[in-house]
């Protein structure tokens, strides 16, 4: 029930931000952010209540995982908004949040109720990989934004969104910071995941498809950051690879969870 309201608030937030984009009344962006923030608070309340009711962190079901993921995405949006003051990010992130949120209704009945859901390492592993992935999504979003904005500036063809998007350097900065923070957080999550696999499952989970994809994702982003740091990768390359890296994440989450059941 609470999550229904959360999704409704996120929808209202997206609606107001879209209106702001077209009508350019600055108050609308503020209202959209208030809806997003209220939605986020309720999203967290919902997670806590679910946790309190069952005594298990709600990450043992696909449904619970999606609820955590939506909260993580909105949390990262709020964090990046406070840093960059760019409401246009919400237009990219909110549709994804809403779609993920709507998926929870489809997964409502699926409850594998795995007995490892209470492990300490899992509590570290899950939130960190989810938040890390949320940052990677923002890196991918900023990558797309970079392509669009760069294309407009290069070809001197200023479309409707030209004035709404941040300057190229800001987008590039957003991409760089999202990658760096995301990588650090994701690394912690991955290490916790490996330890969890070693201790709780005597290494049998180490070869699971999900973990292998997590390592691949980690490696892809690690390489992007490494090349970026050594200044060999122009912003365009970084933008492109952020998108590629994120596709790896999508495969890891949905491909593996839905089809391989790793």
């Amino acid at each position: 029930m609470i999550y229904d309201i959360v999704i409704l608030l996120y929808m209202l937030s997206l609606l107001h931000m879209s209106l702001f984009f077209f009508l350019e009344y600055k108050k609308l962006a503020g209202i959209a952010n208030i809806f997003a923030l209220t939605g986020f608070v309720l999203n967290i309340v919902d997670i806590i209540l679910k946790w309190a009711n069952t005594g298990i962190f709600p990450s043992h079901t696909m449904n619970g995982l999606l609820i955590i993921l939506t909260a993580a995405l909105v949390a990262v949006y709020i964090f990046l908004y406070l840093k960059y003051k760019r409401p246009s990010l919400l237009l990219f992130i909110m549709p994804i949040v809403i779609i993920l949120g709507l998926f929870t209704f489809a997964f409502k009945d699926i409850n594998p109720a795995r007995d490892f859901a209470t492990s300490f390492w899992l509590y570290i592993h899950l939130p960190f990989t989810v938040v890390g992935s949320a940052f990677f999504l923002f890196a991918a979003i900023s990558g797309v934004m970079y392509f669009v904005q760069e294309n407009q500036l290069k070809n001197k063809n200023f479309g409707f969104i030209y004035s709404k998007f941040p300057p190229l350097n800001v987008i590039n900065n957003l991409n760089k910071n999202s990658l760096n923070i995301g990588f650090a957080v994701f690394t912690i999550g991955l290490i916790a995941g490996i330890i969890w696999g070693l201790y709780e499952w005597n290494g049998t989970l180490l070869l699971s498809a999900k973990l292998i994809f997590a390592v691949i994702t980690w490696a892809v982003f690690g390489i992007i950051i490494l090349i970026r740091q050594t200044k060999g990768l122009a912003p365009r390359g970084s933008a492109l690879w952020s998108v590629v890296g994120f596709i790896c994440i999508v495969i890891m989450y949905f491909g593996v969870a839905l089809f391989l059941r790793g």
């Binding site: 500036l153 030209y162 004035s163 941040p166 300057p167 190229l168 350097n169 800001v170 900065n173």
Partner: peptide
């Protein structure tokens, strides 16, 4: 008042759109 309407000022605004 946001969109500059002189050549020299619009050049500077374009620079801001690239560099922030």
């Amino acid at each position: 008042s946001e969109n500059p309407i002189t050549v020299s000022y619009s050049a500077v605004e374009l620079a801001k759109k690239i560099f922030g």
